[in-house]
Nucleic acid binder design. Structure first.
Lengths: 233, 233
DNA sequence: CCGCGCTGCCACAATTCTGCCGCGGAAAGG
DNA sequence: CCTTTCCGCGGCAGAATTGTGGCAGCGCGG
Protein backbone atom coordinates (compact mmCIF):
# COMPACT_ATOMS: atom_id res chain seq x y z
CA UNK A 1 0.00 0.00 0.00
CA UNK A 2 1.37 3.36 -1.08
CA UNK A 3 1.97 6.07 1.48
CA UNK A 4 -0.53 8.86 1.11
CA UNK A 5 0.41 12.51 1.34
CA UNK A 6 -1.68 15.63 1.26
CA UNK A 7 -0.80 18.84 -0.54
CA UNK A 8 -2.52 22.12 0.26
CA UNK A 9 -1.84 25.20 -1.83
CA UNK A 10 -3.99 27.81 -3.49
CA UNK A 11 -1.80 27.80 -6.59
CA UNK A 12 -3.10 25.16 -8.93
CA UNK A 13 0.15 25.07 -10.88
CA UNK A 14 2.18 24.15 -7.88
CA UNK A 15 -0.44 21.66 -6.86
CA UNK A 16 -0.28 19.96 -10.22
CA UNK A 17 3.44 19.84 -10.74
CA UNK A 18 4.36 18.83 -7.24
CA UNK A 19 1.73 16.16 -6.97
CA UNK A 20 2.93 14.76 -10.26
CA UNK A 21 6.43 14.59 -8.97
CA UNK A 22 5.37 12.93 -5.77
CA UNK A 23 3.22 10.42 -7.53
CA UNK A 24 6.17 9.57 -9.71
CA UNK A 25 7.92 8.66 -6.52
CA UNK A 26 5.23 6.19 -5.67
CA UNK A 27 3.20 8.28 -3.22
CA UNK A 28 -0.51 8.72 -3.35
CA UNK A 29 -1.35 12.40 -3.21
CA UNK A 30 -4.51 14.18 -2.09
CA UNK A 31 -4.55 17.78 -3.25
CA UNK A 32 -6.53 20.69 -1.87
CA UNK A 33 -6.51 24.26 -3.09
CA UNK A 34 -8.90 25.55 -0.47
CA UNK A 35 -7.86 25.43 3.15
CA UNK A 36 -11.32 24.93 4.51
CA UNK A 37 -11.86 22.01 2.23
CA UNK A 38 -8.46 20.79 3.23
CA UNK A 39 -9.31 20.86 6.91
CA UNK A 40 -12.29 18.65 6.31
CA UNK A 41 -10.43 16.37 3.97
CA UNK A 42 -7.45 15.97 6.27
CA UNK A 43 -9.71 14.90 9.09
CA UNK A 44 -11.71 12.48 7.08
CA UNK A 45 -8.88 10.95 5.14
CA UNK A 46 -5.77 11.53 7.19
CA UNK A 47 -2.62 11.13 5.11
CA UNK A 48 0.76 10.16 6.46
CA UNK A 49 1.95 13.74 6.09
CA UNK A 50 0.64 17.07 4.88
CA UNK A 51 2.44 19.82 2.98
CA UNK A 52 0.81 23.18 3.62
CA UNK A 53 1.33 26.49 1.95
CA UNK A 54 1.43 29.21 4.57
CA UNK A 55 -0.07 31.98 2.48
CA UNK A 56 -3.57 31.18 1.48
CA UNK A 57 -6.77 33.14 1.16
CA UNK A 58 -9.61 32.59 3.61
CA UNK A 59 -7.70 30.48 6.08
CA UNK A 60 -3.94 30.50 5.97
CA UNK A 61 -1.65 27.64 6.72
CA UNK A 62 -0.94 28.53 10.31
CA UNK A 63 -4.57 28.67 11.13
CA UNK A 64 -5.18 25.44 9.32
CA UNK A 65 -2.42 23.84 11.30
CA UNK A 66 -3.80 25.17 14.54
CA UNK A 67 -7.20 23.69 13.88
CA UNK A 68 -5.65 20.47 12.75
CA UNK A 69 -3.56 20.20 15.88
CA UNK A 70 -6.65 20.25 18.01
CA UNK A 71 -7.51 16.79 16.82
CA UNK A 72 -4.46 15.21 15.33
CA UNK A 73 -0.71 14.95 15.43
CA UNK A 74 -0.38 14.73 11.69
CA UNK A 75 3.17 15.52 10.52
CA UNK A 76 3.25 18.80 8.62
CA UNK A 77 5.71 20.54 6.35
CA UNK A 78 5.20 24.21 5.62
CA UNK A 79 5.85 26.02 2.38
CA UNK A 80 6.96 29.61 2.95
CA UNK A 81 8.02 32.48 0.79
CA UNK A 82 11.65 33.01 1.52
CA UNK A 83 11.30 36.72 2.11
CA UNK A 84 9.04 36.07 5.00
CA UNK A 85 11.19 34.89 7.79
CA UNK A 86 8.47 35.45 10.28
CA UNK A 87 6.52 32.57 8.91
CA UNK A 88 9.23 30.13 9.69
CA UNK A 89 9.39 30.66 13.37
CA UNK A 90 5.65 30.90 13.47
CA UNK A 91 5.21 27.63 11.71
CA UNK A 92 7.73 25.72 13.72
CA UNK A 93 6.48 27.18 16.93
CA UNK A 94 3.05 25.95 16.13
CA UNK A 95 4.12 22.42 15.69
CA UNK A 96 5.13 22.08 12.08
CA UNK A 97 7.73 19.39 11.59
CA UNK A 98 9.72 21.17 8.92
CA UNK A 99 9.44 23.92 6.38
CA UNK A 100 10.72 24.75 2.94
CA UNK A 101 11.06 28.16 1.40
CA UNK A 102 9.81 28.86 -2.07
CA UNK A 103 11.04 28.43 -4.63
CA UNK A 104 12.17 24.95 -3.82
CA UNK A 105 13.48 22.07 -5.79
CA UNK A 106 11.31 19.04 -5.88
CA UNK A 107 14.30 17.07 -4.88
CA UNK A 108 14.56 19.03 -1.67
CA UNK A 109 10.92 18.58 -0.93
CA UNK A 110 11.22 14.88 -1.46
CA UNK A 111 14.16 14.68 0.87
CA UNK A 112 12.31 16.57 3.58
CA UNK A 113 9.23 14.47 3.20
CA UNK A 114 11.20 11.28 3.55
CA UNK A 115 13.04 12.66 6.51
CA UNK A 116 9.90 13.68 8.32
CA UNK A 117 8.23 10.40 7.58
CA UNK A 118 11.24 8.57 8.89
CA UNK A 119 11.30 10.65 12.02
CA UNK A 120 7.66 10.17 12.75
CA UNK A 121 8.19 6.49 12.32
CA UNK A 122 5.30 6.07 9.99
CA UNK A 123 5.86 4.19 6.81
CA UNK A 124 2.58 2.92 5.63
CA UNK A 125 0.13 4.07 8.17
CA UNK A 126 -1.35 7.47 7.73
CA UNK A 127 -3.90 8.20 10.38
CA UNK A 128 -3.08 9.24 13.86
CA UNK A 129 -5.50 6.89 15.48
CA UNK A 130 -5.10 3.79 13.42
CA UNK A 131 -7.00 1.76 15.92
CA UNK A 132 -8.89 -1.34 15.26
CA UNK A 133 -12.16 -1.39 17.09
CA UNK A 134 -13.41 -4.84 17.78
CA UNK A 135 -16.41 -5.48 19.99
CA UNK A 136 -17.89 -8.90 19.71
CA UNK A 137 -19.39 -9.24 16.28
CA UNK A 138 -18.31 -5.83 15.11
CA UNK A 139 -14.91 -5.07 13.70
CA UNK A 140 -13.75 -1.69 12.46
CA UNK A 141 -10.32 -1.21 10.99
CA UNK A 142 -10.00 2.47 10.36
CA UNK A 143 -6.57 2.00 8.89
CA UNK A 144 -7.85 -0.14 6.08
CA UNK A 145 -11.33 1.30 6.10
CA UNK A 146 -12.68 -2.16 6.70
CA UNK A 147 -15.84 -2.99 8.53
CA UNK A 148 -17.28 -6.38 9.23
CA UNK A 149 -20.18 -7.84 11.14
CA UNK A 150 -20.07 -11.46 12.24
CA UNK A 151 -17.17 -12.03 9.94
CA UNK A 152 -18.83 -10.72 6.82
CA UNK A 153 -17.71 -7.48 5.31
CA UNK A 154 -20.09 -4.55 5.39
CA UNK A 155 -19.23 -1.89 2.86
CA UNK A 156 -19.57 1.55 4.35
CA UNK A 157 -18.92 4.94 2.83
CA UNK A 158 -16.47 7.29 4.49
CA UNK A 159 -19.10 9.21 6.37
CA UNK A 160 -20.88 6.11 7.53
CA UNK A 161 -17.61 4.62 8.65
CA UNK A 162 -16.63 7.67 10.67
CA UNK A 163 -20.00 7.83 12.33
CA UNK A 164 -20.06 4.19 13.26
CA UNK A 165 -16.51 4.50 14.49
CA UNK A 166 -17.44 7.38 16.73
CA UNK A 167 -20.33 5.41 18.12
CA UNK A 168 -18.53 2.12 18.56
CA UNK A 169 -15.53 3.76 20.15
CA UNK A 170 -17.34 3.77 23.45
CA UNK A 171 -20.07 1.18 23.52
CA UNK A 172 -22.87 2.15 25.83
CA UNK A 173 -22.01 5.83 25.66
CA UNK A 174 -24.48 8.27 24.18
CA UNK A 175 -23.33 10.60 21.45
CA UNK A 176 -25.33 13.65 20.53
CA UNK A 177 -25.82 14.49 16.91
CA UNK A 178 -23.45 17.40 17.36
CA UNK A 179 -20.74 15.17 18.72
CA UNK A 180 -21.21 12.77 15.87
CA UNK A 181 -21.00 15.65 13.46
CA UNK A 182 -17.68 16.65 14.94
CA UNK A 183 -16.36 13.17 14.69
CA UNK A 184 -17.31 12.76 11.08
CA UNK A 185 -16.68 16.18 9.65
CA UNK A 186 -14.63 18.26 12.03
CA UNK A 187 -15.70 21.28 13.97
CA UNK A 188 -16.14 23.76 11.20
CA UNK A 189 -18.95 22.08 9.41
CA UNK A 190 -22.56 22.70 10.09
CA UNK A 191 -25.21 20.40 8.78
CA UNK A 192 -28.80 19.69 9.54
CA UNK A 193 -29.15 17.48 12.56
CA UNK A 194 -31.38 15.25 10.54
CA UNK A 195 -28.55 14.47 8.17
CA UNK A 196 -27.03 12.36 10.92
CA UNK A 197 -30.30 10.48 11.09
CA UNK A 198 -30.05 9.78 7.41
CA UNK A 199 -26.63 8.28 7.77
CA UNK A 200 -27.71 6.21 10.73
CA UNK A 201 -30.56 5.01 8.59
CA UNK A 202 -28.15 3.90 5.89
CA UNK A 203 -25.79 2.24 8.33
CA UNK A 204 -28.62 0.31 9.91
CA UNK A 205 -29.91 -0.72 6.55
CA UNK A 206 -26.55 -2.04 5.43
CA UNK A 207 -26.13 -4.08 8.57
CA UNK A 208 -29.65 -5.38 8.43
CA UNK A 209 -29.01 -6.55 4.91
CA UNK A 210 -26.57 -9.02 6.43
CA UNK A 211 -28.37 -9.63 9.67
CA UNK A 212 -32.01 -8.78 9.96
CA UNK A 213 -31.69 -8.83 13.75
CA UNK A 214 -29.13 -6.07 13.89
CA UNK A 215 -30.12 -3.54 16.53
CA UNK A 216 -26.92 -2.35 18.11
CA UNK A 217 -27.44 1.27 17.23
CA UNK A 218 -29.92 2.53 19.74
CA UNK A 219 -31.81 5.81 19.55
CA UNK A 220 -32.16 7.81 22.73
CA UNK A 221 -35.13 10.02 22.26
CA UNK A 222 -34.12 13.62 22.61
CA UNK A 223 -30.48 12.76 23.26
CA UNK A 224 -28.75 11.06 20.40
CA UNK A 225 -27.51 7.61 19.53
CA UNK A 226 -25.43 4.98 21.18
CA UNK A 227 -23.83 1.74 20.18
CA UNK A 228 -24.81 -1.14 22.38
CA UNK A 229 -21.98 -3.55 22.95
CA UNK A 230 -22.50 -7.15 23.96
CA UNK A 231 -24.00 -7.50 27.38
CA UNK A 232 -20.95 -5.73 28.74
CA UNK A 233 -22.35 -3.55 31.49
CA UNK B 1 -34.10 26.27 27.56
CA UNK B 2 -33.06 28.35 24.65
CA UNK B 3 -29.43 29.35 24.62
CA UNK B 4 -28.97 33.10 24.46
CA UNK B 5 -26.33 34.68 22.26
CA UNK B 6 -25.24 38.26 21.84
CA UNK B 7 -24.40 39.91 18.57
CA UNK B 8 -22.43 43.16 18.42
CA UNK B 9 -21.94 44.96 15.13
CA UNK B 10 -22.34 48.53 13.97
CA UNK B 11 -23.88 47.39 10.72
CA UNK B 12 -27.61 47.10 11.22
CA UNK B 13 -28.00 44.94 8.15
CA UNK B 14 -25.66 42.30 9.43
CA UNK B 15 -27.27 42.52 12.82
CA UNK B 16 -30.68 41.89 11.36
CA UNK B 17 -29.88 39.10 8.97
CA UNK B 18 -27.59 37.18 11.25
CA UNK B 19 -29.84 37.40 14.26
CA UNK B 20 -32.68 36.17 12.13
CA UNK B 21 -30.67 33.18 11.06
CA UNK B 22 -29.65 32.41 14.60
CA UNK B 23 -33.16 32.71 15.89
CA UNK B 24 -34.28 30.33 13.21
CA UNK B 25 -31.89 27.88 14.80
CA UNK B 26 -33.59 28.23 18.12
CA UNK B 27 -31.22 30.64 19.79
CA UNK B 28 -32.31 33.73 21.60
CA UNK B 29 -30.34 36.69 20.34
CA UNK B 30 -29.50 40.02 21.99
CA UNK B 31 -28.27 42.53 19.44
CA UNK B 32 -26.17 45.62 20.04
CA UNK B 33 -24.95 48.09 17.44
CA UNK B 34 -23.03 50.21 19.88
CA UNK B 35 -20.11 48.73 21.70
CA UNK B 36 -20.58 50.78 24.83
CA UNK B 37 -24.16 49.72 25.11
CA UNK B 38 -23.00 46.22 24.41
CA UNK B 39 -20.55 46.28 27.28
CA UNK B 40 -23.28 47.21 29.69
CA UNK B 41 -25.74 44.77 28.23
CA UNK B 42 -23.29 41.90 28.22
CA UNK B 43 -22.58 42.43 31.88
CA UNK B 44 -26.16 42.70 32.98
CA UNK B 45 -27.52 39.95 30.86
CA UNK B 46 -24.63 37.67 30.08
CA UNK B 47 -25.37 35.39 27.14
CA UNK B 48 -23.82 31.99 26.59
CA UNK B 49 -21.60 33.43 23.89
CA UNK B 50 -20.96 36.75 22.16
CA UNK B 51 -20.16 37.46 18.53
CA UNK B 52 -18.24 40.73 18.21
CA UNK B 53 -17.35 42.72 15.15
CA UNK B 54 -13.78 43.92 15.43
CA UNK B 55 -14.17 47.12 13.50
CA UNK B 56 -16.53 49.44 15.26
CA UNK B 57 -16.68 53.16 15.87
CA UNK B 58 -16.08 54.54 19.35
CA UNK B 59 -14.90 51.33 20.93
CA UNK B 60 -13.73 48.51 18.72
CA UNK B 61 -14.11 44.83 19.34
CA UNK B 62 -10.71 44.27 20.85
CA UNK B 63 -11.22 46.97 23.37
CA UNK B 64 -14.65 45.68 24.17
CA UNK B 65 -13.23 42.24 24.69
CA UNK B 66 -10.51 43.58 26.93
CA UNK B 67 -13.00 45.30 29.18
CA UNK B 68 -15.20 42.28 29.15
CA UNK B 69 -12.37 39.97 30.09
CA UNK B 70 -11.76 41.94 33.24
CA UNK B 71 -14.98 40.64 34.64
CA UNK B 72 -16.00 37.60 32.74
CA UNK B 73 -14.85 34.58 30.83
CA UNK B 74 -17.64 34.84 28.32
CA UNK B 75 -16.88 32.87 25.16
CA UNK B 76 -16.32 35.24 22.24
CA UNK B 77 -16.18 34.88 18.49
CA UNK B 78 -14.71 37.75 16.47
CA UNK B 79 -15.80 38.97 13.09
CA UNK B 80 -12.88 40.29 11.08
CA UNK B 81 -12.48 41.77 7.63
CA UNK B 82 -10.44 39.40 5.60
CA UNK B 83 -7.98 42.01 4.43
CA UNK B 84 -6.94 42.64 7.97
CA UNK B 85 -4.77 39.78 8.97
CA UNK B 86 -3.47 41.57 11.98
CA UNK B 87 -6.82 41.31 13.62
CA UNK B 88 -6.72 37.59 13.69
CA UNK B 89 -3.72 37.06 15.84
CA UNK B 90 -4.74 40.01 17.92
CA UNK B 91 -8.16 38.64 18.59
CA UNK B 92 -7.02 35.17 19.47
CA UNK B 93 -4.19 36.50 21.55
CA UNK B 94 -6.63 38.50 23.57
CA UNK B 95 -8.70 35.56 24.47
CA UNK B 96 -11.25 35.27 21.74
CA UNK B 97 -12.33 31.70 21.31
CA UNK B 98 -12.56 31.81 17.56
CA UNK B 99 -12.98 34.24 14.73
CA UNK B 100 -14.49 34.40 11.30
CA UNK B 101 -13.48 36.58 8.40
CA UNK B 102 -16.09 38.54 6.52
CA UNK B 103 -17.78 37.78 4.36
CA UNK B 104 -18.81 34.58 6.01
CA UNK B 105 -21.49 32.04 5.37
CA UNK B 106 -24.09 31.80 8.06
CA UNK B 107 -23.52 28.13 8.02
CA UNK B 108 -19.90 28.57 8.99
CA UNK B 109 -20.85 30.96 11.75
CA UNK B 110 -23.32 28.43 13.07
CA UNK B 111 -20.70 25.73 13.02
CA UNK B 112 -18.26 27.89 14.95
CA UNK B 113 -20.86 28.93 17.46
CA UNK B 114 -21.85 25.37 18.14
CA UNK B 115 -18.24 24.32 18.38
CA UNK B 116 -17.37 27.03 20.87
CA UNK B 117 -20.47 26.39 22.92
CA UNK B 118 -19.70 22.73 22.96
CA UNK B 119 -16.16 23.35 24.07
CA UNK B 120 -17.12 25.69 26.84
CA UNK B 121 -19.95 23.42 27.82
CA UNK B 122 -17.67 20.44 28.10
CA UNK B 123 -15.39 22.21 30.46
CA UNK B 124 -18.22 22.97 32.80
CA UNK B 125 -19.71 19.53 32.68
CA UNK B 126 -16.40 17.76 32.89
CA UNK B 127 -15.01 19.97 35.57
CA UNK B 128 -17.79 20.64 38.01
CA UNK B 129 -20.04 17.67 38.14
CA UNK B 130 -18.67 14.26 37.38
CA UNK B 131 -22.09 12.88 38.03
CA UNK B 132 -22.47 9.30 38.69
CA UNK B 133 -24.93 8.80 41.47
CA UNK B 134 -24.73 5.38 43.00
CA UNK B 135 -26.67 4.46 46.10
CA UNK B 136 -26.96 0.77 46.72
CA UNK B 137 -29.18 -0.67 44.04
CA UNK B 138 -29.59 2.56 42.16
CA UNK B 139 -27.12 3.88 39.65
CA UNK B 140 -27.48 7.08 37.67
CA UNK B 141 -24.88 8.08 35.12
CA UNK B 142 -25.91 11.36 33.63
CA UNK B 143 -22.99 11.37 31.26
CA UNK B 144 -24.20 8.24 29.58
CA UNK B 145 -27.81 8.90 30.37
CA UNK B 146 -27.82 5.50 31.96
CA UNK B 147 -30.01 4.41 34.83
CA UNK B 148 -30.02 1.02 36.41
CA UNK B 149 -31.70 -0.71 39.33
CA UNK B 150 -30.15 -3.83 40.79
CA UNK B 151 -27.91 -4.08 37.78
CA UNK B 152 -30.66 -3.96 35.21
CA UNK B 153 -31.10 -1.00 32.97
CA UNK B 154 -34.18 1.13 33.43
CA UNK B 155 -34.95 3.30 30.45
CA UNK B 156 -35.96 6.79 31.46
CA UNK B 157 -36.87 9.78 29.36
CA UNK B 158 -34.92 12.97 29.78
CA UNK B 159 -37.43 14.52 32.14
CA UNK B 160 -37.76 11.43 34.24
CA UNK B 161 -34.02 11.13 34.44
CA UNK B 162 -33.60 14.69 35.64
CA UNK B 163 -36.26 14.32 38.27
CA UNK B 164 -34.90 11.08 39.64
CA UNK B 165 -31.45 12.58 39.61
CA UNK B 166 -32.64 15.54 41.64
CA UNK B 167 -34.26 13.21 44.14
CA UNK B 168 -31.46 10.68 44.41
CA UNK B 169 -28.85 13.37 44.76
CA UNK B 170 -29.63 13.58 48.44
CA UNK B 171 -31.28 10.42 49.69
CA UNK B 172 -33.55 11.09 52.62
CA UNK B 173 -33.95 14.74 51.72
CA UNK B 174 -37.36 16.05 50.78
CA UNK B 175 -37.78 17.98 47.58
CA UNK B 176 -40.81 20.13 46.97
CA UNK B 177 -42.50 19.98 43.62
CA UNK B 178 -41.17 23.44 42.91
CA UNK B 179 -37.63 22.36 43.58
CA UNK B 180 -38.04 19.35 41.35
CA UNK B 181 -39.47 21.56 38.66
CA UNK B 182 -36.43 23.79 38.81
CA UNK B 183 -34.11 20.83 38.62
CA UNK B 184 -35.80 19.37 35.59
CA UNK B 185 -36.81 22.40 33.59
CA UNK B 186 -34.89 25.38 34.82
CA UNK B 187 -36.14 28.18 36.94
CA UNK B 188 -38.16 30.08 34.43
CA UNK B 189 -40.63 27.39 33.60
CA UNK B 190 -43.87 26.99 35.39
CA UNK B 191 -46.03 23.95 35.12
CA UNK B 192 -48.92 22.45 36.95
CA UNK B 193 -47.75 20.88 40.19
CA UNK B 194 -49.56 17.73 39.32
CA UNK B 195 -47.35 17.28 36.29
CA UNK B 196 -44.53 16.32 38.62
CA UNK B 197 -46.83 13.73 40.10
CA UNK B 198 -47.36 12.32 36.66
CA UNK B 199 -43.67 11.93 36.09
CA UNK B 200 -43.17 10.35 39.48
CA UNK B 201 -45.95 7.98 38.56
CA UNK B 202 -44.12 6.99 35.39
CA UNK B 203 -40.79 6.60 37.12
CA UNK B 204 -42.32 4.37 39.75
CA UNK B 205 -44.05 2.33 37.12
CA UNK B 206 -40.87 1.78 35.16
CA UNK B 207 -39.00 0.64 38.24
CA UNK B 208 -41.79 -1.59 39.38
CA UNK B 209 -41.78 -3.25 36.00
CA UNK B 210 -38.35 -4.57 36.97
CA UNK B 211 -38.93 -4.94 40.67
CA UNK B 212 -42.47 -5.07 42.00
CA UNK B 213 -41.16 -4.23 45.48
CA UNK B 214 -39.70 -0.90 44.47
CA UNK B 215 -40.73 1.79 46.94
CA UNK B 216 -37.78 4.12 47.25
CA UNK B 217 -39.66 7.19 46.13
CA UNK B 218 -41.68 8.28 49.11
CA UNK B 219 -44.50 10.80 49.09
CA UNK B 220 -44.58 13.38 51.86
CA UNK B 221 -48.17 14.43 52.12
CA UNK B 222 -48.46 18.12 51.41
CA UNK B 223 -44.70 18.57 51.10
CA UNK B 224 -43.17 16.76 48.19
CA UNK B 225 -41.14 13.66 47.49
CA UNK B 226 -37.96 12.10 48.73
CA UNK B 227 -35.75 9.27 47.69
CA UNK B 228 -35.12 6.75 50.43
CA UNK B 229 -31.63 5.34 50.42
CA UNK B 230 -30.75 1.99 51.92
CA UNK B 231 -31.59 1.80 55.59
CA UNK B 232 -27.92 2.40 56.23
CA UNK B 233 -28.77 6.03 56.69
C1' DC C 1 -21.77 13.59 -22.11
C1' DC C 2 -23.70 9.79 -19.33
C1' DG C 3 -24.10 6.89 -15.45
C1' DC C 4 -23.17 5.84 -10.72
C1' DG C 5 -22.20 6.22 -5.92
C1' DC C 6 -22.32 9.39 -2.10
C1' DT C 7 -24.61 13.05 0.40
C1' DG C 8 -27.46 16.44 2.35
C1' DC C 9 -32.00 17.50 3.08
C1' DC C 10 -37.11 17.44 2.78
C1' DA C 11 -41.67 15.75 3.52
C1' DC C 12 -44.66 12.54 5.64
C1' DA C 13 -45.70 8.84 8.58
C1' DA C 14 -44.71 6.56 12.87
C1' DT C 15 -43.28 6.73 17.50
C1' DT C 16 -42.44 8.62 21.89
C1' DC C 17 -42.96 12.06 25.35
C1' DT C 18 -45.55 15.12 28.20
C1' DG C 19 -48.62 18.17 30.50
C1' DC C 20 -53.17 17.80 32.37
C1' DC C 21 -57.81 16.01 33.68
C1' DG C 22 -60.86 13.50 36.31
C1' DC C 23 -62.09 9.81 39.20
C1' DG C 24 -61.74 7.59 43.42
C1' DG C 25 -58.99 6.56 47.47
C1' DA C 26 -55.90 8.22 51.30
C1' DA C 27 -54.38 11.44 54.66
C1' DA C 28 -55.03 15.27 57.86
C1' DG C 29 -58.00 17.88 61.08
C1' DG C 30 -62.05 18.52 63.82
C1' DC D 1 -67.41 10.18 61.26
C1' DC D 2 -67.27 14.01 57.99
C1' DT D 3 -64.98 17.58 55.28
C1' DT D 4 -61.18 19.19 52.92
C1' DT D 5 -56.87 18.44 50.64
C1' DC D 6 -53.77 15.85 48.46
C1' DC D 7 -52.22 11.90 45.61
C1' DG D 8 -52.01 7.60 42.49
C1' DC D 9 -53.37 6.19 38.18
C1' DG D 10 -55.41 5.55 33.68
C1' DG D 11 -56.02 8.17 29.68
C1' DC D 12 -55.54 11.48 26.05
C1' DA D 13 -54.47 14.82 22.60
C1' DG D 14 -50.95 17.78 21.18
C1' DA D 15 -46.00 18.44 20.79
C1' DA D 16 -41.56 16.71 19.85
C1' DT D 17 -38.57 13.66 17.87
C1' DT D 18 -37.26 10.02 14.80
C1' DG D 19 -37.59 6.51 10.72
C1' DT D 20 -37.70 6.37 5.87
C1' DG D 21 -38.23 6.87 0.92
C1' DG D 22 -36.95 10.05 -2.38
C1' DC D 23 -34.75 13.51 -4.89
C1' DA D 24 -31.29 16.67 -6.58
C1' DG D 25 -26.45 18.13 -6.67
C1' DC D 26 -21.68 16.73 -7.08
C1' DG D 27 -17.54 14.43 -8.11
C1' DC D 28 -15.51 10.70 -10.56
C1' DG D 29 -14.71 7.52 -14.33
C1' DG D 30 -15.79 5.90 -18.28
Amino acid sequence: MATRLALVDDDQNILASVSLALEAEGYEVDTYFDSEQALIGLMRRPPALAVLDIKMPRMDGTELLAKLRQKSALPVIFLTSKDDELDEALGLGMGADDYITKPFSQRLLLARIKAVLRRSGLEITGGTKADIISHGDLMLDSDRHLCSWKGREVKLTVTEFLLLQALAQRPGHVKSRDQLMDAAYGESVFLEDRTIDSHIKRIRRKFRAHDAEFDRIETLYGIGYKYKGDEAA
